[in-house]
Design a protein around this nucleic acid. Sequence first.
DNA 1: TCTGGGGTCCTAGGACCC
DNA 2: TCTGGGGTCCTAGGACCC
Length: 430
Amino acid sequence: MFAIVDCDNCYVSCERVFHPELNGKPVVVLSNNDGCVVARSNEAKMLGIKAGMPYYKMMEQHPNDDIAVFSSNYELYGDMTDRVMTIVRNDVPEFYRYSIDEGFCNLKGLEYSDLKAWGEAMHKKIRQWTGMPVSIGIGPTKTLAKVASHYAKHYKGYRHCCMIDTQEKRQKALVRYEIGDVWGIGRQYSARLMGMGIQNALQFADKPQGWVRSVFNIVVERTWRELNGEDCIPPEEMSKKKSILTSRSFPDMVDDIDTLRTSISNFAVRCAEKLRRQRSVAHGVSVFIDTNRFREDLPQYWNSSYETLLTPTNSTQAIVQAAFRCTERIFRQGYKLKRAGVMVSDLLPDTAIQTNFVDYDAESYQKQHRLDEVIDRINRINGSETIVLGSQQYTAQGGKGKAGVFRDSIRHEFRSPNYTTRWGEIPEAD
DNA sequence: TCTGGGGTCCTAGGACCC
DNA sequence: TCTGGGGTCCTAGGACCC
């Protein structure tokens, strides 16, 4: 049997831990730049606020509703959810983190204990120790566990834990489950399935396997098998990433290369840090830039550029320089850019670097490596961006540009403090 | 005025090889 | 008029997830 532990309205719940007066009230958390609604409390959902709705539209549509609004604070959410997942990990034979707010447990060996009681106790413990409300679904496959967690979340009677462990329970759960809510069935597939008269998960699961395979593909077929009780999604302990992307939308549009380079530099530095954290090196670096697709009145331009590095690396300097070269190749005068990003790909373990004869210089390589290590350590202890490259802090707009004070150019007007990681710090005092 | 930021896997088709 | 039969690798695009 598998269990999934899933934080309820994760980001909202993190904020509420430090604002208990907001329990029972509508609360939303916004994406970067305070752009879209990315998390909603149940009360906010009941007001009809949709996920992904632009913040300004929410304000237009709800001028008189008393809605608490937070900018996203990933440092806080990351730390809170780490605590939750640690509690679970320490209590089960096998655990893997699936996303920031979910983790799967393999409960093998516990089959003869009362798993439902285990789930209820787990919920209680997490709530007590961290303040985070979670829902727990248990089933013979991960997809069925997901179905179960949906019921745990929406029906009080389950006391935060629902288990599918018999055929009758499976059928009862699936017949009332919309096809589009099934894990692995997204918008496109559910539209097609509905067109064929398949509304709920049981109708889908009852179709012949060969039909599913021939009309769709092996991915959808795998979901079908899971719904029929066959475990076939491999655990994949979120091992190392195969590519790493750092990208942002700009709060204001960018049309000069110096400002763009500053952002690209920041993104490349983040990519290099993430590479080193997972002990990988990258063979490829790419950069993309994009105008604002919502502004049909402005000329549109998007492009990307990729380059292969002679020697795979995770050195900040090498990756920033490659990203700069990519940027030069695609930047065009006269376009207002809204978004850009840096991606490192073709990742390899840092233990197996295939060096290149032409440009490999062991001494400077070692030097750079030690420098990166020291900077990582300082930034880990003192907070990220304690030390930055010169190229990261150019500010054309100037303004707050106190020398040596690096600020990312992201709007987050309603950000809460990093309660659990940096006491006393007031982010974005200005 | 104002619209996020990450990832994964699969498939079809083209280039290229013998 | 009629023009083989395999392979592999890479890429772009499309689907999905959170």
